[in-house]
Simulated assay, not measured.
Amino acid sequence: MENLLLLHGALGSAAMLAPLKEALQRSYNVYTLDFSGHGGRPLPQESFSMQRFVQDIRQFLEEQQLEQTHIFGYSMGGYAALSLALEQPERIRSIYTLATKFSWSVEAAEKETRVLEPERVEEKVPAFAATLAQRHAPQDWKQVMRQTASMMRALGQSPLLTPDTLPQLQLPVQVAVGDRDNMVTVEETLWAYRLLPDARLQVLPNTRHPFETLSIPDLSQHIRQFLEQVSR
């Protein structure tokens, strides 16, 4: 069977992808990983960065001795997967991104990070704060959130996926977005699709951003269909 690596999004963890892994593991050798500081992994000495997360994937591939793999990346995970492909395209067979924000600027980063204030989250959305505390224990979820905001600001200043770099990615890519995603627009997904040389575009109906709201049976079927196409 071919290898498939599932990557979680910002503030997420590998555990969130467990149902998707279970749905796909009869067809592929499925792997998941926690990015640094997520899912209980130690916080890195330096601040979060997309380069740090790309290094996490590289190290994981080496540890698991995966010479080549398909990757599914949800949200930030999709951005990290494509960023890795810029460095080591030979390691990746294909990439399926879902709800990945491609359009990063200073203004976009400022908008995204307004909601990443731990004290405000704890006051206004205590249930979400409790979920994050459990998800990232024993690490401090507030620090995870602050460092995520810092990473987003850095992306706003210096995005890795640009009109110059995206056309360099020659591997098959499927970019998917929900039609009701309030964080990622169809327009920015279409922008990336047009710049990628071997891309497919998918707009999922009646679909919002949070991974927890997705239909795992539907998503696993979409992933299978894509991988079957590129593996022929």
Score class of each variant (00 low, 15 high):
residue 142 K to A: 12
residue 125 V to P: 00
residue 104 W to Y: 15
residue 121 V to I: 15
residue 79 Y to A: 12
residue 89 P to E: 11
residue 123 E to S: 14
residue 120 R to T: 14
residue 145 M to H: 06
residue 128 F to I: 14
residue 125 V to H: 13
residue 113 T to V: 15
residue 92 I to T: 09
residue 105 S to G: 10
residue 109 A to N: 07
residue 136 H to L: 10
residue 145 M to P: 04
residue 100 T to S: 15
residue 108 A to E: 14
residue 150 S to W: 01
residue 120 R to D: 12
residue 141 W to G: 11
residue 116 L to W: 01
residue 149 A to V: 01
residue 78 G to N: 03
residue 90 E to H: 13
residue 145 M to F: 00
residue 124 K to W: 03
residue 100 T to H: 05
residue 143 Q to Y: 00
residue 127 A to Y: 05
residue 148 T to W: 00
residue 82 L to H: 05
residue 78 G to F: 01
residue 118 P to S: 08
residue 149 A to M: 04
residue 105 S to M: 06
residue 99 A to L: 02
residue 115 V to E: 12
residue 118 P to A: 11
residue 122 E to V: 09
residue 97 T to D: 02
residue 111 K to H: 09
residue 144 V to I: 11
residue 141 W to R: 10
residue 112 E to M: 15
residue 147 Q to V: 01
residue 81 A to G: 13
residue 113 T to K: 01
residue 102 F to W: 11
residue 97 T to R: 05
residue 113 T to L: 00
residue 86 L to W: 05
residue 92 I to K: 08
residue 74 Y to A: 07
residue 112 E to A: 15
residue 114 R to W: 01
residue 148 T to H: 00
residue 109 A to T: 05
residue 72 F to D: 09
residue 142 K to Q: 15
residue 126 P to L: 08
residue 144 V to G: 03
residue 131 T to I: 09
residue 141 W to M: 12
residue 130 A to S: 14
residue 111 K to N: 10
residue 133 A to I: 02
residue 130 A to R: 13
residue 81 A to T: 06
residue 119 E to R: 13
residue 86 L to I: 07
residue 72 F to V: 07
residue 107 E to H: 10
residue 85 A to N: 02
residue 141 W to D: 10
residue 137 A to P: 04
residue 85 A to Q: 03
residue 138 P to E: 06
residue 93 R to P: 02
residue 108 A to G: 05
residue 75 S to E: 01
residue 141 W to F: 12
residue 104 W to H: 15
residue 84 L to V: 08
residue 122 E to W: 00
residue 123 E to Y: 10
residue 143 Q to W: 00
residue 142 K to G: 15
residue 102 F to Y: 10
residue 90 E to A: 14
residue 95 I to E: 04
residue 94 S to P: 04
residue 131 T to C: 03
residue 127 A to R: 13
residue 113 T to E: 02
residue 131 T to W: 08
residue 119 E to G: 15
residue 138 P to Y: 03
residue 70 H to E: 08
residue 140 D to E: 14
residue 91 R to K: 15
residue 112 E to Y: 08
residue 96 Y to G: 00
residue 141 W to Q: 11
residue 102 F to Q: 02
residue 150 S to Y: 04
residue 117 E to T: 11
residue 75 S to W: 00
residue 135 R to D: 09
residue 112 E to T: 10
residue 136 H to P: 09
residue 102 F to I: 04
residue 96 Y to S: 12
residue 95 I to C: 11
residue 128 F to S: 12
residue 133 A to M: 02
residue 110 E to H: 14
residue 101 K to S: 10
residue 144 V to E: 04
residue 134 Q to D: 11
residue 69 T to P: 04
residue 83 S to G: 12
residue 79 Y to P: 07
residue 125 V to K: 10
residue 108 A to L: 01
residue 113 T to M: 02
residue 110 E to P: 02
residue 73 G to P: 06
residue 134 Q to S: 14
residue 127 A to E: 15
residue 120 R to C: 05
residue 103 S to K: 08
residue 122 E to D: 12
residue 73 G to H: 08
residue 85 A to T: 14
residue 100 T to K: 06
residue 147 Q to L: 13
residue 78 G to K: 04
residue 134 Q to I: 07
residue 79 Y to D: 08
residue 117 E to H: 11
residue 144 V to T: 06
residue 101 K to L: 09
residue 104 W to N: 05
residue 77 G to D: 05
residue 106 V to G: 11
residue 116 L to H: 04
residue 86 L to H: 09
residue 91 R to E: 01
residue 146 R to D: 06
residue 140 D to Q: 12
residue 103 S to R: 08
residue 70 H to L: 05
residue 106 V to R: 14
residue 147 Q to A: 09
residue 145 M to N: 07
residue 105 S to D: 10
residue 90 E to M: 01
